[in-house]
Amino acid sequence: MDKNLLGNNVIAQIGILVHDIEKTSQVYAEFFGMMKPEWSLTDAVDKAKTEYKSEPTEARAKLAFFDMGSLQLELIEPDEHPSTWREHLNEHGEGPHHIAFFIKGMEEKVKLLELNGMALTQKGEYTGGRYAYMDTFKELKVMVELLENDN
């Protein structure tokens, strides 16, 4: 395997799958002594261009973010449409789903990871950037999310 596939080793985010974002975000807020963040809904497929296993999907998720200094904690409550979130929640239950890294050169990074046996599972766009989930579960015991912002 190539060394330092991502070009950095700073974890930007930890994503946790949940069944009830309202309840879980309240528990996290109380635990950390923080305000409970409002959740937001991911964009629809026409804007997000979401693909799961190389096919367009209507999948959406409720997201709540806790900014924890240099790290962001993301709670994810997926809908029932096919997605990496739904599949992982169904198979493994609530808990950690991914660690995310900011990268530059999304297409090149995805190809490099694929050459190293880590398949692209899901990708999409958000306002100001794009994301890709790579199937690193076998190797790393968690998925890796690549985040590339436009600015």
Rank of each mutant, 00 (worst) to 15 (best):
D67N: 15
G93M: 07
L71Y: 03
T57P: 10
L73Q: 03
Q72L: 05
L71P: 03
F66W: 05
E58A: 14
H97A: 05
Q72W: 00
N90Y: 03
Q72T: 10
D67K: 15
W85F: 15
L89R: 02
R60A: 08
R60S: 09
D79L: 11
A64Q: 02
W85A: 13
A61D: 10
R60V: 10
G95F: 07
H88Y: 14
I99A: 10
E77L: 00
P82Q: 05
P56M: 13
I99Q: 12
S70M: 06
A61R: 07
A61H: 07
T57I: 11
A59N: 01
L73R: 03
S70A: 11
N90P: 00
D79Q: 13
E58D: 14
P96N: 08
E94M: 07
P78G: 08
E80P: 01
L89C: 05
L71N: 04
H97S: 08
R60C: 03
G69M: 10
A61V: 02
K62I: 09
L71K: 03
T84G: 15
R86H: 11
E91I: 00
D79H: 13
N90G: 08
S83V: 01
A59P: 00
R60E: 12
D67E: 15
L75D: 11
A59F: 07
K62L: 12
N90E: 15
E91C: 06
P82V: 06
H92R: 14
L73G: 05
L71W: 02
Q72H: 02
P56H: 09
E74N: 06
H98G: 12
G95L: 02
G69D: 12
S83P: 05
S70W: 04
L63V: 15
H98E: 10
S70K: 12
H92L: 13
G95C: 07
E94S: 07
Q72K: 13
E94I: 00
R60L: 05
M68L: 15
E87L: 07
I99F: 11
H81C: 01
L73D: 08
E91K: 12
D67S: 14
E91H: 11
T84L: 15
L75H: 09
A64V: 05
P78Y: 04
G95H: 02
E94Y: 00
